[in-house]
Design a protein around this nucleic acid. Structure first.
Lengths: 137, 137
DNA sequence: GTTAAACAGGACTATTTTAACCCTATTATC
DNA sequence: GATAATAGGGTTAAAATAGTCCTGTTTAAC
């Protein structure tokens, strides 16, 4: 049921990895994949998503790689989730109304939407900065 | 990403349907499936899960069917989720440690677990009683 | 006691989503 | 120009979800 995707896990690990390396340091996908034990190709996709969202910045060419696109307290877990998985939809009808047989007569769409919003608030409450501090402390 | 399963949606709708029918009233799966526009067989599976969890009670034989197993303020959305989907695992390593390549060196398992717990608290905060009142109000 | 309407549940299939891989650009350093 | 990197489209593989089928059991009604 409520489970995050592996791509999100990859992305979150990558961001914390970049964070520990410092804001300016450029790191290749290969290094991260080796270090974290992930598939290089797949992590690469995650990084591309993070880049599009401005969470990571990239340098192309030889000596290229990724670095953080903002400071660690300007990136929340919610930002990473949205960058990688797009806008959240707790229920199908949020994606497209015709995915639900009883859209017009449904009694709990309102509740599901507020629930989804509350979950987003939870994710948005944690910045990478606070996450790292939690681990260290 | 974070999306509830259709089986859960079916189950939640079925419970609220039973609730509007009153605590003692026995309703067949056929009636519910017709009324809600769901597959009878699949809804039947959801009902069986709800029954095992005590959320619904069943009467077998002709004239049989389902009714609520407890009062509407003793059933939370979390109860239904657990009945139908089992214990939640926001991350793979919660299911089984070897589902994660970096279990031993992972830095945010603790965070993910508290996050999961907070989501459960959200789900547990809504009873069927309060959900119905919200719709009516 | 036979029939029929319902739940119970195991096993199977189909569909959808997720994960992963392949291959071809493009970019930039040396 | 060779090479090491990102960028990204397209395809395949694996896993999870959704749905079906079939057989059994229970019990009210006749």
């Amino acid at each position: 049921m409520l489970q995050v995707s592996r791509k999100f896990e990859y992305g979150l690990h990558a961001v914390t990895y970049l964070a520990t390396k410092g804001l300016g340091r450029v790191v290749t996908v290969k290094e991260m994949a080796d270090e974290l034990g992930f598939s290089q190709e797949f992590l690469s996709k995650a990084m591309q998503s993070l880049k599009r969202a401005g969470i990571a910045a990239s340098v192309q060419g030889v000596k290229g790689g990724y670095m953080l696109g903002k400071s660690t307290d300007a990136i929340t877990v919610a930002d990473i989730a949205i960058a990688i998985e797009g806008e959240p939809h707790l229920v199908r009808c949020g994606v497209k109304a015709d995915r639900c047989e009883i859209f017009s007569s449904c009694h709990h769409r309102g509740y599901m939407n507020t629930l989804q919003h509350k979950i987003q608030v939870l994710l948005a409450a944690t910045t990478i900065h606070s996450l790292l501090k939690e681990v260290a402390g």
